[in-house]
Amino acid sequence: MMSAAITTRPPTAPVPHAPAAGGTRRRSRLRQRLELAFLLTPALVLFIGFVLIPIGVAGYYSLYSWNGFGPLTDFVGLDNYVAAFSGDVFQGAIGHNLIIATLSIVVQLPLSIGLALLLNRKLRGRTFLRMVVFAPYVLSEAVTAVIWLLMLQPGGFIDEILRGVGLGGFVQLWLADQSLVLYTLFVVITWKYIGFGVILLLAGLQGVPPELREAAALDGASAWQTTRHVVLPLLGPTIRIWVFLSVIGSLQLFDLVWIMTLGGPANASTTMATYLVDHGFKRYEFGFGSAVAVILFIICFLFALVYQRFALRRDTQGALTGVR
């Protein structure tokens, strides 16, 4: 989905073939269909086998109370869904996902734009700085999580740095304080993913024609006015895509949380995905876990549909919709 979403509009609609004699046209159409069938089948088989069928199967399992062994016999209807939604822990998990999603838009977006604008300017060591900003994104989630888990222990690297610069009073129990842990995780998430936003926006900035800035400058626009009224509007498509990816990522947040806190302490950092693994796999409740998975899927899917329909409509016209 990502590659399809990032690819902006296709250049132009394909030029229709010049009309030819009837027989040739029919033959070429047949050939076209064969080509399509030949090229699409492998991808389609994989997609159906590893995406569509598992989704359907999860929906089927979710109607049973099933511990993963033996045939499904205990049909419970929608009980699993009711149980999930009425549980405090899952409600909390949805809340945590929403907090992370909101924070990423409110905090990460301005930060990414600021850094991208900065790194787009001609300054010494620009390539190096871009690399530094992007480096955390290249690390695997597991590595990131373990590094930060160790650094955030009481008396660990972070605490020592704070004490070293005279900010010892700010030292907290980063991962043990139930009211703080989610925000600690958010900082780590930001550290990890800010590079991706910056790179995306830098690419977007390449698409802003220098002539427009020059024209704005000639008209006496200040640097801020140029940025605000010329550059930012032209970054719109990139920003909208970033928001889309970021929200979906926030809703599916798992690896970092799982390794750093397991959703704890006392469920203070549980997300929908950690709840799913905790209850589905660790407790051998595959029916219930499937229900949670279906809920997570529906939430993401609905968001994707609504967002595509209203926010991304113009940006992806032609790429995701029919050429008009």
């Binding site: 009481p154 129990l173 980063w174 991962l175 043990a176 006392a266």
Partner: peptide
């Protein structure tokens, strides 16, 4: 120890 609810059992010196 302080913050034991966030301490891993076997990973790292902490």
């Amino acid at each position: 120890q302080d913050g034991f609810v966030g301490t891993p059992a076997q990973q790292g010196a902490g």
